[in-house]
Design a protein around this nucleic acid. Structure first.
Length: 431
RNA sequence: UCCUCUGUAGCUCAAUCGGUAGAGCGAGUGGCUGUUAACCACUAGGUUGGGGGUUCAAGUCCCUCCGGGGGAGCCA
């Protein structure tokens, strides 16, 4: 008898296998029990026929609560009536534990009810599908970068000072002499590692202590941040585009079952193609004004502006050369007009907003020092960063992609809180 | 901090003009050989978020506090 996983149950057609899992749902019809069994890799229907079992035991199974842990043995049969294509003709069933009455039913629940039960909620079909797509997206990103010659170099979570000074940071007491702040970005460190390795990326959690309470914000979220030496804005855009395409293609190719569970309109994803449409910040402002949007030139786009711009195309929209005033201090000025900088945002369709932000970094030490002072940043803390421009400075750039927003977009779900196993949100930290 | 919606059974929701609190799911008991959120019958389940007010009468109207959702601000 073979231990099998539901994921590749097709390989065992006609054979008797053992599945170790949990009872997802149970329907009973007189002499038949239909058990929906999940094992983490999928859900299969297991059928018990009364004459094959001890009558007392058969009765006991009918009363098994949802999520009871069970080990099921049976013969794998092809069956057109099953969504999976196969079902299990049960020959043996071992009850490992009878669950207590399980709070989450296979039906609609409110977020208020589900969020405090996130540790159980992740067992549900849709959550299972989302988190599997997330894992595939992460694999696609790492494969893409590894295959393109980027080296993974991890950057610290504890940082001595604000990466960019302005945003709200989570403060911790690091030791008796120092406070430390949870990182908002590994980028500044990436700028050091590229000078050692050429092309690098960091991949990890980042923290923002803003009081944002929207469907696009989490307090703890994951970012992948590639950075390249000897690179210009055009290289940044090219790799960003390549990475998004790699993600889209991989998910469409390997996550069909999950997309179907989520009822994702895949035609929206299939329509994405390179090159992505591009426009400068100034052109974007013109378009907003033509559409009658009350937008102040020089300001940052609000979520509604982003939605208007990004829904003009199937593919993500590349907006470049934002005003220096609304971007980070380290952005390289546009040689054509230094009120703008060589920055870029990727706005994805369907209202998911900015998924990538990046640009070319400043390479001149004097100008960088000037910017640090203009922004009232602690000069001492940035000494090492300025050093990078003193010892063999080169044009360089990179970008950051937010994992959760990307997952939400791929899955077509409303809120990014479902794209991570245990979301950290304002006023919510349980479980 | 502001705007807006919302709070009724374990869960998801209903309750007309202010007139005795209702259904489905879940739970319990029984039935059924192909169910797909199975179905059928019966049973239990309520301080309508808390406090105050108006009224003969409040789930419903008013005030207030608390909780929750969405958004704005904020957010490379």
């Amino acid at each position: 008898m073979k231990d099998a996983r539901i994921e590749d149950i097709g390989k065992y057609e006609g054979l008797e296998v053992t599945l170790k899992g949990w009872l997802y749902n149970l329907r009973s019809k007189g002499k038949l029990h239909f058990l929906q069994v999940r094992d983490g890799s999928g859900i299969i229907q297991a059928v018990m026929f009364k004459p094959n079992f001890d009558p007392e035991f058969f009765k006991e199974v009918k009363k098994l609560p949802q999520e009871s842990s069970i080990i099921v043995t049976g013969k794998v049969k092809k069956d057109k009536r099953s969504a999976l294509g196969y079902e299990l003709d049960v020959t043996g069933l071992e009850i490992i534990q009878k669950s207590d009455q399980y709070p989450i039913q296979p039906k609609e629940h409110s977020v208020e009810f589900l969020l405090p039960r996130r540790h159980l909620w992740i067992r549900s079909r849709m959550q299972w599908a989302i988190l599997r797509i997330r894992a595939e997206i992460i694999r696609a990103i790492r494969d893409y970068l590894d295959d393109s010659g980027f080296l993974l170099v991890d950057t610290p979570i504890f940082t001595p000072a604000a990466c960019e000074g302005t945003t709200t940071l989570f403060e911790t007491q690091y030791d008796s002499h120092h406070k430390a702040y949870l990182t908002q970005s590994g980028q500044l460190y990436n700028e050091a590692t590229i000078m050692a390795f050429g092309k690098t990326y960091c991949f990890g959690p980042t923290f923002r202590a803003e009081k944002s309470k929207t469907r696009r914000h989490l307090r703890e979220f994951w970012m992948v941040e590639p950075e390249m030496a000897y690179a210009h804005l055009e290289d940044v855009i090219r790799y960003s585009e390549g990475m998004i395409m790699a993600i889209v293609e991989r998910v469409l190719d390997r996550k069909k079952v999950e997309l179907e569970i989520l009822e994702r309109d895949v035609s929206k994803l299939e329509a994405i193609q390179t090159p992505f449409p591009r426009m400068s910040y100034q052109d974007a402002v013109k378009i907003l004004h033509e559409k009658g949007v009350d937008f102040k030139d020089g300001g940052d786009f609000g979520s509604e502006d982003e939605t208007i711009l990004s829904s003009m195309n199937h593919s993500p929209l590349v907006v470049h050369r934002f005003p220096s005033a609304i971007k980070a201090f380290y952005m390289e000025p546009d040689p054509e007009d230094d009120t703008y900088c060589l920055s870029v945002d990727f706005l994805v369709p369907e209202g998911y907003g900015e998924v990538i932000g990046g640009g070319e970094r400043m390479s001149d030490p004097d100008l960088l020092l000037q910017r640090v002072r203009e922004h009232n940043l602690p000069e001492d803390a940035f000494q090492w960063y300025i050093d990078l421009r003193r010892y063999g400075s080169v044009p360089h750039g990179g970008f950051g992609l937010g994992i959760e927003r990307t997952v939400a977009w791929m899955c077509g779900i409303e809120h990014i809180r479902e794209t991570i196993a245990f979301p950290r949100m304002l006023y919510k930290i349980y479980p």
